[in-house]
Design a protein around this nucleic acid. Structure first.
Lengths: 342, 342
DNA sequence: GTGAAAGCGCTAACAC
DNA sequence: GTGTTAGCGCTTTCAC
């Protein structure tokens, strides 16, 4: 038995296109044409259709459209950590822009896990999502191949994927890190350590590269012992900073390449009973609502997170088959507060 | 022309159910029966079907299922502020549980706006979403009627909607606020102010009620001038605290009923150059990654946010037509740090 | 136990 | 310009 009985105008369920057609005295095809203005329809009929649709509260049924057209109006947003305010602000930028384009977001939290990410990518394909915005779990290992093969438009954000030909929106991580490090050098710090993320993330590598570049430019040697790699989470930053602060001679400044890590590093410094910035200075990456209110307020490399999301949505909305890939690199800005200088 | 040519096994697009049927030498109906184990199928045939499906990488096409069954596997999550870590942690709880149940989340940010919320509710209905988790924009004005009428299962979280018969997951806001206020009283504060949210939010009202209850129980008069209502955002907390701190005699303690507001209040206290907790103590509502690292570390009423999300998902997954509504009230916990006592 | 057939709501090709 | 028709992929009767 079909889900509902024979077509009828009784308003139990939602109005369908043929309800509207009947009410307007035209065919379903004409209703479709009017509502998608895909072809010329006589003005009076068009008006009747619109009025009927309005009156019946007609909304086209997404799944039916999707079945017919083999694509939905849903964008999958695959991010690595939904609890990181950085991604959250970005998602908000995507959402605002998506809404304007008539798209909705399916939220996918890959949790920095390649398997979970792959599963979400498969789902996006199986469900014929109209596009995917992804902050890859790994620059080298994340496999965007299936998306490309199935012609699902993809935009990479924050983290640059290995694969060529993918639209992307990132910030100039290296320059941002360079400025942060340079700032620490110029404020008179001698032993500057760097805490960054795993090698599989382009952001972690570029920020480390920026740190090294600044050190080199100022004739400083990069001591391997002063560079730590860990996860991009609070606990990682905490562990790395704790271990760094045990080194003798102790580092007198920390450049921490991620917002949550910075929180962890702050904890570690506090636990060690060290004064900031007198004994240890600290500069973080990415601004957040709380950076001005920590003890002391944090100097950070701010990123235009919301705008990254907007740009990503824009790229997705304008993606066209066969078009050359587009890459947007947004600038960062050093926000100096008191964690780096007295 | 149909979207794809005649059915063929060529693997350009995704495998369909009839591809699997052909490969297994059975009918599409049988494939469906096997994959949904909806009816008995001979063991050998079942095995052939499963093997074929596996080999072809077959994934049922969501929209087609949705069209047939008049419902999707998507849950709409309508929250008021995606940039608030409180909601974010909750969403994560929902997501983890949803994944386990085979559901995906469509993220909707109502932005505390009734129109945006209504639009998202309409969309959830039009798209036949399988369920809705909602933190209403207004206890009194948010209209869940359409969802109920169209039999879309709904679970309210965080904020209790007016409408009866809706499953909900909330915390004991009043008790939490009472304990926070009592703590301020017991640590010797005399003029305790309260900054809470707009009257349209049950959480704002209940937390205010808790404040008043504690004051009353200890024989304190509630001075209207020491109660402020504003939005649940950082700027609201900032403005309210700034104005409160100008009062003479000045309040010597602030109970702030929301996490972002607390950040704003902290700013205001800092700008006024007052020592915390000596000149002004402060207790916030809701814990967050940064609460232990502000200057000074914040005493807060912690909420089980992730668990709220999980419970909401559980309720949604087990919602049954005609069932009595279920209400889960989770406890809060006072986390005492140094912003309330030296 | 299993296949054939119908139809969910929609759009695009085709006729006129 | 507009109606008729077919069919997207799937599930669920119905008939055997």
């Amino acid at each position: 038995m079909p889900p509902r009985g024979k077509t009828r105008s009784a308003p139990r369920g939602l109005a369908t296109i043929s309800d509207v057609a009947k009410a307007a005295g035209v065919s379903a095809a004409t209703v479709s044409r009017v509502l998608n203005d895909s072809s010329n329809v006589a003005a009076d009929k068009a008006k009747r259709v619109r009025k009927a649709a309005e009156r019946l509260g007609y909304k086209p049924f997404g799944p039916a459209q999707a079945l017919r057209q083999q694509r939905t109006r849903l964008w999958a947003v695959i991010i690595a950590d939904i609890e990181n305010p950085f991604f959250t602000a970005m998602v908000r930028g995507i959402e605002d822009a998506a809404l304007a384009e008539g798209h909705r977001l399916v939220l996918c939290n890959s949790d920095e896990d390649l398997d979970k990410e792959a599963a979400y990518i498969d789902l996006a394909i199986a469900e014929r999502n109209a596009g995917v915005v992804i902050a890859v779990a790994s620059t080298n290992e994340s496999d965007l191949g299936p998306l490309v093969e199935h012609k699902v438009p993809v935009v990479a954000v924050d983290r640059e994927p290995m694969r060529a030909g993918i639209d992307s929106v990132v910030v100039d991580n290296q320059l941002g890190a360079e400025q942060a490090t340079e700032h620490l050098i110029e404020t008179g710090h001698r032993r500057i350590a760097c805490i960054t993320g795993p090698t599989r993330l382009s952001t972690a590598n570029e920020r480390l590269a920026g740190y090294k570049a600044a050190m080199a430019r100022h004739g400083r040697k990069v001591e391997p012992g002063l560079v730590r790699r860990t996860n991009f989470k609070q606990d990682g930053g905490h562990r790395a900073a704790r271990s760094l602060l045990k080194a003798r001679p102790r580092p007198d400044a920390l450049f921490v390449a991620n917002n949550l890590m910075t929180l962890g590093a702050l904890e570690a410094i506090r636990e060690a009973g060290l004064a900031i910035p007198e004994q240890v200075a600290i500069v973080g990456f990415d601004d957040a609502p709380w950076t001005g209110l920590t003890d002391p307020p944090l100097t950070v490399v701010a990123q235009p997170t919301y705008e990254m999301g907007q740009h990503a949505a824009q790229l997705l909305a304008t993606a066209t088959e066969g078009m050359a890939s587009r890459h947007i690199v947004l600038p960062t800005a050093l926000v100096v507060r008191s964690s780096s200088r007295s």
